[in-house]
Nucleic acid binder design. Structure first.
Length: 642
RNA sequence: GCCCGGAUGGCGGAAUUGGUAGACGCAAGGGACUUAAAAUCCCUCGGUCGUGAGGCUGUGCCGGUUCGAUCCCGGCUCCGGGCACCA
């Protein structure tokens, strides 16, 4: 493999680094770990830019560092092999060695070069620069671990306080100078075996001696600024977004190259540039577009001279960065977005996707939204108010994938159990943001449940045909109890689905309701017909989101009108769901000893005396001093005795 | 190395605001029905001591705060994920 330099197009996402970072603290509907990943990706760090004068050169070398407190210990300089100064400052005697090193790096695969175990290597250029504080002459090296893409591509090397520099210095026998001493220990440059990178007390640092190294950062920044050799800066890890791809499938980048006018954007009226259909896929390297003359040749929009189209296409992340905006007005033909409709629909209330999009897609979509906001297309700062990252399907302890061969055949499942069963299981097994453990026995259980529901509905049909609407006033006894269960279930299922997307507990609530309904007797008493009917129809409607096909069938059986998808969600009646009495647990010294039943709305005093009088509590209080009684109305009483 | 998650029965998971730990389901064991099996139904099901009533104990480990901690705080262990020669 050989690295090639290519001219590419970039989006200047770095202009938005600060805002993208800032808003990570203002998206309460996003999972914390996604925000953390984005923060790390953006990678803001505070430090200093410091310029080191170069022997025999007008211009010095500027470095970025977060450790200006260690500047007194800088004993050499490291540049990225690609650094623009490298070539120029290399002395004739060193030229051969430097060239060999640069070529070797160019041949090294980037992934391997950046692996941690990769040995620190470098070459001296023959040049020297000067430490602006100590006046010490520092040899300038090229080093394989210095990255041109980060900071300024140049690093002041402080072997005593940076592990990489330490290893490098030991290898090339460069002096190590300690400028920070840890508390209760004295470092000796001659015997140190690793760099000391923590906070400590400064030494060998002139007027800063004795200062805590963390506090000294600020002082040194000011000091350097005063000397005119440095300034405080902020650096980001985030790079600009390279969007050029040398492949056919993608949106052509709308640029025309003219020998006279340079790179000219395709005029708005000619947008979008569409992919030609008559390309030949030869399997040769490079984009097939580059070999298609009819696509390539185009007059320059400015001067009319024969010009060439850009043949690179855009990264597919470009499209996924704004499709949700286009979805607000997909039929709009006057431009990319119908502003008023985009304003109406945005932001997306709930966005769902896999965790694998935590940085790239989700960061790019945020970036696009901000750019389009600044261009006046949308009115929102952020595209997605709430984000749910769903888990993967796990089977036999591994992510389900074709290559691992641990996939479940959906056709077999559908054939054997039906799609509803498979769907029910995957919703029931875990909340959506968690990985889901696939279990064939679990699927079997879901199937059994559906069969029970089916049987229950059919058995109940004769008793609910022609039943009236429930009259809450006339309900008594078991009918009233059943109705309470039904309305409590509606409340639970509704809350679980709407508030938290916890479909697993919503389904559990439906199962519990089915259990009560199955146990309900007598079903054939005509005075229970109305309550039963309400129960069964509510059940069928609540099952619809999870098992739509079965629910639709049952809906027809219970005499429901129209399609279930059009039927309103059942509403619960708080009065019907309200208990008449509550179970209150009684603790003595924090240990559960008894349960008592109190009417709803019982006062604290009533609850308290009932608890103190409870059968199994009284013996425990005998001969003891009552120290404290904590009453949580409707829940618990804790009696503290000593 | 740094940063984030997480750890609850044999298993997947509940417990929404500090207040009954283990909902719901799976698996397992026992029973009913059956000539038999499947299916279905009923019962048991954290550990431990006890014939029993019941006691003790228990949410990765060690401490703390509190009348009360799966939940809050401090210190660890292990697992998962992200980033990583980032100066």
């Amino acid at each position: 493999m050989k690295q090639k330099e290519l001219d590419q197009w970039f989006f200047r996402i770095t202009d938005y680094a600060e805002e993208l970072l800032d808003w990570t603290n203002r998206l309460p509907g996003w999972p914390e770990r996604v925000m953390t990943m984005q923060r790390n990706w953006i990678g803001k760090s505070f430090g200093c830019e410091i310029t080191f004068p170069l022997d025999g050169e007008e211009e010095g070398i500027t470095v970025f560092t977060t450790r200006q407190d260690t500047l007194y210990g800088a004993t050499f300089m490291s540049l990225a092999p690609e650094h623009p100064l490298a070539e120029r400052i290399t002395t004739p005697e060193r030229r051969e060695a430097v060239t060999a090193f640069v070529e070797k790096i160019a041949r090294t695969d980037r992934v391997r070069r950046t692996a941690e175990e990769f040995e620190k290597e470098g070459v001296w250029t023959g040049a020297f620069c000067t430490n602006p504080l100590t006046g010490c002459r520092m040899p300038v090296y090229l080093a394989n671990f210095v990255l041109m893409e980060y900071g300024t591509g140049a690093v002041m090397a402080v072997p005593a306080h940076d592990q990489r520099d330490f290893e490098f210095a030991r290898k090339y026998e460069i002096p190590v100078k300690v400028v920070i001493q840890p508390d209760g220990e004295v470092l000796d440059p001659a015997t140190m075996t690793a760099a000391y990178t923590e906070v400590g007390s400064m030494v060998n640092s002139d007027k800063f001696n004795g200062t805590r190294s963390d506090a000294a950062k600020e002082l040194l920044a000011d000091h350097l600024a005063g000397m005119g050799v440095g300034k405080k800066t902020v650096n980001f890890r985030l790079r600009d977004w390279g969007i050029s791809r040398q492949r056919y499938w993608g949106n052509p980048i709308p640029i025309i190259y003219c020998d006279l006018c340079g790179a000219v954007p395709v005029p708005d009226v000619d947008l979008p540039v569409t992919l030609p259909k008559d390309v030949a896929f030869t399997g040769e390297g490079g984009s097939p577009l580059a070999r298609l003359e009819s696509f390539l040749q185009v007059p320059c929009p400015l001067c009319g001279a024969l010009a060439r189209r850009e043949t690179d296409t855009m990264d597919t992340f470009v499209q996924s960065s704004w499709y949700f905006l286009r979805y607000c007005s997909p039929d709009y033909t006057e431009g990319a977005l119908d502003k008023s409709r985009a304003e109406y629909w945005m932001s997306v209330d709930q966005y769902i996707g896999g965790i694998e999009h935590a940085v790239l897609h989700l960061l790019y979509a945020r970036f696009f939204t901000k750019v389009l906001r600044d261009l006046g297309y949308v009115a929102v700062d952020e595209p997605f108010t709430n984000l749910l990252t769903q888990g993967m399907v796990i089977k036999d302890g591994a992510k389900m994938s074709k290559s691992k061969g641990n996939v479940v055949d959906p056709n077999g499942l559908v054939e054997r159990y039906g799609a509803d069963t498979a769907r029910l299981f995957s919703l029931f097994a875990a909340p959506p943001e968690k990985d889901l453990d696939w279990s064939d026995q679990g699927v079997e259980g879901s199937y059994r449940f559906l069969n029970r529901v089916w049987k229950l509905v059919y058995e109940t049909l004769p008793f609910i045909k022609g039943a009236a609407v429930v009259d809450p006033e006339k309900l008594t006894g078991e009918g009233k109890v059943l109705r309470r269960t039904v309305h409590k279930s509606i409340r639970r299922v509704t809350d679980d689905i709407e508030g938290r997307f916890h479909f697993n507990t919503a389904i559990a609530a439906v199962m519990e309701m089915v259990n009560s309904l199955s146990a309900f007797e007598p079903k054939n008493d005509p005075k229970n017909g109305a309550v039963l009917r309400e129960a069964v129809t509510s059940l069928v409607i609540m099952l619809a989101p999870f098992v739509p096909h079965a629910a639709e069938e049952l809906w027809e059986e219970v005499g429901g009108a129209g399609s279930l998808s059009q039927v309103p969600w059942p509403s619960f009646d708080p009065r019907a769901a309200a208990d008449e009495e509550l179970t209150v647990v009684v603790q003595v010294n924090g240990k559960l000893r008894d349960r008592i039943t109190v009417p709803v709305g019982a006062s604290e005093e009533e609850t308290r005396s009932a608890a103190l009088a409870a059968e199994r509590v009284r013996p425990l209080l005998e001969g003891k001093v009552l120290r404290k009684v904590v009453v949580v109305p409707g829940k618990l009483v804790n009696i503290v005795v000593g």
